[in-house]
Write a protein that binds this DNA or RNA. Structure first.
Lengths: 151, 151
DNA sequence: TCGAACATCTTAGCTGCTAAGACAATTCCT
DNA sequence: AGGAATTGTCTTAGCAGCTAAGATGTTCGA
């Protein structure tokens, strides 16, 4: 820990801000290409990134939408073939949202391109440098998560 | 440049994905606290990050909204005091959207907290490491921008 | 000077959100 | 075990904000 020059902080702040704006634009464009609204894509992403299948209610909590809105989201995702509704056998009130991986083959190119540009960026660093970057990313994600929760 | 192990790439991909999701959640929450919709906040952010004042039409292009929608966005932002409509003296068809900096004082705590967590993260690295991280961020933003444009 | 092009605003119609309540399944309490 | 309260999802009414099309006002070029 050492004291940082103000311009350094300013530059890092700028990178963050720029990266945020780009992330939001990218998110919008990916959704568009998949024939979904940003909201629907956001919920689909939650379902994909979750450990097991999520319930409709859990998606409402995580996304901040009302349960009524989530019904509509799942309707559209199901109609488009991205997910399937499965009643939870242990609690038949619940609806489990199961992602159907096959549907994503169509959009493989999107993810491949994303992967390719990540590889391109990382290719400019040696393995000691990558270690530093990974430590930074890990810490950044953890810190960011805490901040998002109490905002 | 050296060849990367698949698990390393996998971990980096995970960080990216997690960071994206957090960015979108954070964006939603900031907008909420400022009494704006995510759309309005996105446009305001464009206006803040731009060099000079943007025209209404330019905001429509950059945000991907229709000109009609942008009229509504500016109405709401103006009513809330974040921006001011100024007719361009050189071309009186155009409406310049001028950000009123004073309004952001109220939300200083939001930005201070963001700044503070950035400082906290960066505090874990010495200046040689920060140089690596900055190089990474710079490259990442540039590469990401190209990818977003042709997506 | 007049018509074409341009920048923004207005409006009609539509989609998707929230809030409230209906409905069905489960759990709790006696 | 049986009725009441709780829980999870869906339905509906009303509303906000988006798009597309056209109106309005301004500029530019011949």
């Amino acid at each position: 820990m050492f004291d940082m020059e103000p311009e350094v902080l300013e530059r890092f702040t700028w990178y963050m801000r720029e990266h945020s704006a780009l992330t939001i634009m990218f998110h919008t464009k990916v959704a568009e290409q998949m024939g979904l609204s940003a909201t629907d894509e956001k919920c689909l992403d939650l379902a994909i990134r979750a450990e097991g299948p999520l319930t409709a209610g859990r998606i409402a909590e995580l996304s901040g939408l009302s349960t009524g809105a989530v019904t509509g989201v799942i309707d559209r995702l199901e109609r488009a073939g991205y997910v399937r509704r499965v009643r939870d056998p242990h609690d038949r009130r619940k609806v489990l949202v199961e992602v159907t991986p096959a549907e994503f083959v169509k959009f493989g190119h999107l993810f491949e391109k994303a992967q390719a540009s990540l590889v391109e960026v990382l290719g400019h660093f040696d393995s000691a440098e990558l270690e530093v970057i990974e430590r930074y990313l890990k810490l950044q994600v953890e810190t960011f998560r805490k901040r998002v929760i109490d905002t």
